[in-house]
């Protein structure tokens, strides 16, 4: 049953060193505040999984939280490379990062299989593709009904799923809308889950077929307004595109990255404090979107 708690307590209680952790969000609703709290609490040796690792994963990897990453597209969308991710892969700084690279269709199916309690997913894919040569997890099987060769991939069943959503009610039922990505599947596939929300309301007032995570499948709900920024939350705020382009320069060198993370994440107490720290150095940007 979902406990409504602070993000600090939820991360301390639910994420342990060495855990298999899915922080998901497909451009939209990326759980930045939760990622920062993982960094602040100096979680170590995490096996991370994310379809589209971007800045928050660059930060977790660069701050030494991760030992491995399962992913299907890694980059700073519309900007370029993730410099901390590349430094870890190419030069082992601050720690070597083992990669398990897959495709979107694979990981989407693998989350759905995890949510379904299955050990693997079956899909049509990877024919002629070089990824299986580098990722031994990707295998094939023969369909027992048609004889067709299909790809078989291990399901994703994390210890903890971490997502951001628009709102929860006071009982901890969660409503998520807009581009919902794989977040419902990630929560259902995981043993434990943390959901940060924009607000906690008396009633969700959602249409019958809305995407709702009932409180009995969520471990913790934490109210963190703007907790997806610089990503966006439909109905609340637009994507901070400038932050994404600024990140390229901040993360390019180890020294500038560490200085930025120390000042804005490690030296702040929570996400609101981080926002204050950031606004002290950056004039407020007009947000579009």
């Amino acid at each position: 049953m979902a406990e409504i708690t602070t993000l600090r307590e939820a991360v301390a209680k639910l994420i342990g060193d060495g855990d298999y952790v899915a922080c998901e969000g497909f451009t939209h609703l990326i759980p930045f505040a939760a990622g920062h709290e993982i960094i602040r609490q100096e979680k170590r040796n995490l096996a991370l999984v994310r379809m589209t690792p971007d800045i928050i994963h660059d930060q977790m990897i660069g701050m030494g939280c991760a030992r491995e990453l399962t992913f299907s597209w890694g980059g700073n969308p519309g900007v370029g490379s993730l410099h901390r991710f590349r430094d870890a892969v190419e030069r082992g700084w601050p720690a070597p990062l083992k990669l398990y690279e897959r495709s979107h269709a694979d990981l989407a199916n693998a989350y759905a299989a995890g949510a379904s309690g299955l050990p693997f997913a079956v899909m049509r894919g990877y024919v002629g593709n070089d990824l299986p040569k580098h990722n031994p997890q990707i295998k094939t099987l023969i369909c027992p009904f048609t004889g067709e060769t299909l790809a078989a991939v291990p399901s994703v069943r994390p210890d903890v799923a971490v997502i951001h959503a628009q709102k929860a009610d006071r009982k901890g039922n969660v409503l998520i809308y807009g581009i919902v990505g794989v977040q419902k599947e990630a929560v259902l596939a995981a043993k434990r889950s943390i959901v940060t929300v924009e607000e906690i309301v008396a009633s969700l007032d959602a249409p019958r077929n809305a995407t709702i995570l009932p409180n009995w499948v969520v471990s913790a709900v934490c109210c963190v307004p703007r907790g997806a920024r610089p990503s966006y939350a439909e109905g609340y705020y637009g994507r901070d595109n400038k932050f994404y382009s600024d990140w390229d320069e901040i993360a390019r060198e180890r020294e500038t990255f560490l200085a930025w993370m120390t000042r804005h994440v490690m030296s702040t107490t929570d996400f609101a404090d981080y926002e204050r720290s950031l606004s002290a150095v950056q004039p407020k940007q007009v947000s579009h979107g």
């Binding site: 497909f26 451009t27 939209h28 379809m51 589209t52 969308p77 519309g78 979107h104 269709a105 989407a108 199916n109 989350y111 759905a112 899909m123 049509r124 807009g178 581009i179 919902v180 990505g181 794989v182 419902k184 599947e185 995407t211 966006y232 439909e234 637009g238 994507r239 595109n241 994404y244 979107g289």
Partner: peptide, 28 residues
């Protein structure tokens, strides 16, 4: 869109489905 999941794409769509549904029902 700057990124594949920009709000502009969601706000002007006929419908928005989950990523597993996209790859399973609509593409595959």
């Amino acid at each position: 869109p700057l990124s594949i999941g920009d709000g502009e794409l969601s706000a002007t769509a006929d419908t928005v489905v989950s990523v597993p549904e996209m790859f399973r029902y609509w593409l595959q």
